[in-house]
Simulated scan of single mutants.
Amino acid sequence: MSKITSFFGKVVSEMRKVSWPKRKELTRYTVIVLSTVVFMALFFTVIDLGISEAFRWFLSL
């Protein structure tokens, strides 16, 4: 039981050392991540549709 208590004590100690982002930074990072995800989803959708259309065209020859 003392190992578990020691472990959680060390976890709390390390969590106090963490440099947490400020609200402004967190908002900026969140917007960057979400916009990147949306951009990549749209990009790969367009690529997938293009490749699918190319295969349909090739197979119809």
Rank of each mutant, 00 (worst) to 15 (best):
K24W: 00
I51C: 00
S35I: 15
M40E: 03
V12D: 11
K22C: 07
V38R: 01
R56E: 03
I4G: 08
T30G: 00
F44T: 10
W57V: 15
K22I: 11
S52Y: 11
T36D: 01
A41I: 04
Y29D: 01
V31E: 01
F8S: 04
I32W: 14
M1D: 11
S13F: 04
V11C: 08
K17G: 09
M1S: 14
I51A: 00
K10M: 07
L61G: 12
L61T: 12
K3N: 13
F8H: 02
L26Q: 08
K24Q: 09
S52G: 12
L61W: 06
L59Y: 14
I51S: 03
S60N: 04
S2E: 05
P21T: 04
L59K: 14
I32N: 12
R28M: 04
S13I: 00
A41L: 03
I32K: 14
P21N: 07
E53Q: 07
F44D: 03
A54T: 12
S35F: 13
L34G: 07
V11N: 09
K10N: 10
F44K: 05
L34R: 01
M15Y: 11
S6W: 08
T5C: 11
S13R: 06
V31F: 04
K10Y: 04
L26C: 08
P21S: 04
I51P: 00
T30N: 02
V11G: 09
L42T: 07
S13L: 01
R28N: 12
F58K: 10
F43N: 06
V12T: 14
R16L: 13
F58Y: 08
R56S: 03
F8M: 10
V37S: 10
I47S: 11
V18H: 01
K17E: 12
R56A: 04
S52C: 02
K17T: 09
V46P: 05
F7A: 13
S60T: 02
D48F: 05
L34N: 08
F8R: 04
L34D: 07
K17F: 03
E14P: 08
S60L: 02
A54L: 14
G9C: 04
I51F: 01
L59F: 12
S2W: 00
S35R: 15
V33A: 14
F7Y: 07
D48A: 09
V31I: 15
S60G: 06
K22D: 15
M1P: 11
F39E: 06
G50N: 01
S13Y: 05
S19M: 13
M15K: 05
V46L: 15
F7E: 00
S2V: 03
V12K: 15
M1Q: 12
R56W: 02
T45P: 06
A41R: 01
V11T: 11
S60A: 06
F8I: 09
F55I: 13
V38S: 09
L42G: 04
M1A: 15
F39C: 06
I32P: 09
L49M: 01
V18F: 07
V31Q: 08
S19R: 13
W57D: 13
S19K: 15
K17R: 13
V18W: 02
R28I: 08
I4L: 15
E25C: 05
V31D: 04
L49E: 01
